[in-house]
Amino acid sequence: MRILLIEDDPKTSHYIARGLSEAGHICDTLSDGRDGLYAATSGDYDVIVADRMLPGIDGLSLVRSARAAGMRTPVIFLTSVSGVDDRVEGLEAGGDDYLVKPFAFSELLARVNALGRRPPPQEQQTVLRVGDLEMDLMSRRVTRAGEDIDLQPREFRLLEVLMRATGRVITRTMLLEQVWDLHFDPRTSVVETHISRLRSKIDKPFASPLLQTVRNTGYMLRVGG
């Protein structure tokens, strides 16, 4: 993979770049946020690793600007701040992962490889369809057989994730990550409760169910289940 590393501490930058190169990756290094923004939006990178505190512009502003310009490359933030609010701020700025300093290089490498294995983002769809179920992402309207379905924001997001993966099983862990942005199991029935509510709205009033429970695995949307 080709990786862009934006880190202003020379020792840290050299340490990471050497490790990534030894792991078989191509690593370009920069130390300034403005230079990093230009490279992120003009270069062809598989993963970007960016420090939050950078000269020029900070890492959060860098990623926000790059996302606004249409950059879709996965980003891992490196930071010395570890509070929950700081992690949330990084993710909301457009980051895909967050690693607190000091860190083990093996963990960074594992996270880089994991992001690099993600399928490339597809062109943005504005309307999703599964059988007679339709979701308009622009108007945030959901209908089935022409009838409007009123969904709460979390139910809408849950249905969107399922519709984008039509015919494939989505596990409980995947739903926690993609719908609730939880990377741990809260040991509650939040997923099951929302699935039940969603099923009551998109399936029960209609003749054929679309939302399937795959025993001991997860859930999927499928026509003719």
Rank of each mutant, 00 (worst) to 15 (best):
D58H: 02
D51W: 04
S189V: 02
G131K: 04
P74D: 00
D86P: 04
R2K: 15
P55H: 01
L137F: 02
V84L: 11
H194W: 06
R64T: 12
T143A: 06
L99F: 11
M138R: 07
S189D: 09
L99Y: 09
G56W: 09
G36W: 12
R34D: 03
I202L: 13
I76G: 03
L37E: 08
R164A: 08
L108H: 09
I6Y: 02
R140Q: 14
V49F: 07
A104N: 09
T29I: 06
I195D: 02
R52I: 11
Q124L: 07
V169H: 07
E22V: 06
G218T: 05
D148M: 08
D44K: 12
D148F: 11
R67T: 02
D181M: 14
L54Y: 07
R118Q: 12
G56Q: 05
P10L: 00
M1L: 10
Q124A: 12
R197W: 13
A50G: 03
V169Q: 08
F105W: 08
L210Q: 10
P186E: 14
E160I: 01
L176A: 11
P121D: 03
R157P: 01
A114I: 00
D97E: 12
L182F: 15
M220C: 14
E134L: 01
V223G: 09
P205W: 10
L128F: 06
G24K: 03
A93L: 04
R144G: 02
T73H: 05
A104G: 06
V142W: 02
E22T: 04
G167R: 12
A165C: 06
F103G: 04
V81N: 02
T12A: 10
D181E: 15
G225Y: 11
L54S: 03
I170Y: 00
A145N: 11
R34K: 08
F105S: 07
E123P: 05
L176K: 13
V84K: 09
L108D: 05
I149N: 06
I48M: 12
D46K: 05
Q125K: 11
T188M: 01
G56T: 10
A39V: 05
L182E: 10
V161I: 14
H14Y: 01
M1Q: 06
